[in-house]
Amino acid sequence: MLSLISTMEGNVPRSWTPGMPIVSLRDVRKFYGSLEVLKGISLDVRKGEVICIIGPSGSGKSTLIRCINGLNGIQHGSIRVEGLEVNDPKLDVLALRRKVGIVFQQYNLFPHKTALENVMLAPLLVLKEPRRQVEERARELISKVKLQGKENSYPGELSGGQQQRVAIARSLAMCPDVMLFDEVTAALDPETVKEVLVTIKQLASEGMTCILVTHEMGFAREVADHVYFTDGGVIVEHGPPSELFNDAKDPRTRRFLSQVL
């Protein structure tokens, strides 16, 4: 399904149709000063696909995912989300971010808003939808992430796993087409990791396009359609999880997997 990646070089057509990759990266390079953290990344994600990016710390995974919704800028190459070029100075950033939801490692909920208010804030202010409709959807989302009864709790009163699920609901409230997950279980206790992963798995099974940076290899193996192994700012190897986890070609991939599996 994804073998096109290495053959499709350079020119991505300007207009986007639903048959094309929903997210498409071509030769993405990013520098922090003189330090090159992404050294030419190309990958495609099709609608409904779940891809996982794995790799050692400092390999540029989080930077990569943050570039997709424009939180970090890139210096070279192209990132297209439904035909919107992220690396375009005239880009309508809000239009891009309407399509792309992101969930962070540290949840980053608004501590002065209850769980329900966290979910409702953006639809009320940005989509300018009527309050009743927003609240109805927010309550649905909160029960979708299995937090019924916690609507009026403040983030400080919730466990890490619960906060992370509120963050997922908050992101979903904007009805994104693509969800980015940036090491969303890395800050959680082992026993709460599962409840977050179950939520993501459910989303994936409903057809949400998901890009995950993760250290949960078992999870990547289970839910990913395609896994990318990055090291030192490049994609070393990629393939379906069965291939990558059982039959890695590159010695770097094998060494990494032998350490984490």
């Binding site: 939180l71 809000l94 971010r97 962070f104 909920l109 608004f110 953006a122 992101s171 904007m174």
Partner: peptide, 12 residues
């Protein structure tokens, strides 16, 4: 990061 979350949710 809290502000980044707000930015990501399209708040101006």
């Amino acid at each position: 990061p809290t502000l980044e979350a707000s930015e990501s949710l399209c708040l101006s």
